[in-house]
């Protein structure tokens, strides 16, 4: 069971969280024209690689905040967690 640092609440076990997928996928702005490719990249296409992965978790049974987590998909090591409004630095 992963041990995730919620930036609001501190270290908590994974069973307090729900997963939310790739955090680097950006929703196109509302009302903006987007190509099929851009839209499909947002809705369907994922990189999902081995290694470092920025992803979303929601502290569902806690503060209910969505957070960003940088985790290694092969080892599950967690490097960093950010609040929803913090930008992922490349």
């Amino acid at each position: 069971m992963l041990y995730i640092k919620c930036p609001h609440c501190g270290m908590r076990s994974q069973n307090e969280f729900s997963y939310g997928g790739d955090a680097t996928v950006k929703r196109p702005e509302l009302g903006k024209e987007v190509s099929d490719q851009e839209w499909d990249d947002f809705v369907y296409n994922r990189k999902s690689l081995r290694g470092k992965h920025w992803e979303l978790w929601q502290h569902l049974f806690g503060c209910r905040q969505w957070i960003k987590v940088e985790r290694d998909t092969a080892t599950h090591e967690i490097f960093k967690t950010l609040k929803a409004n913090q930008e992922i630095s490349k």
Partner: peptide
């Protein structure tokens, strides 16, 4: 297990 993974090992929960 519910999160992207390449680890051929899972967790007990």
């Amino acid at each position: 297990d519910g999160y992207n993974s390449y680890a051929q090992r899972g967790n007990l929960p």
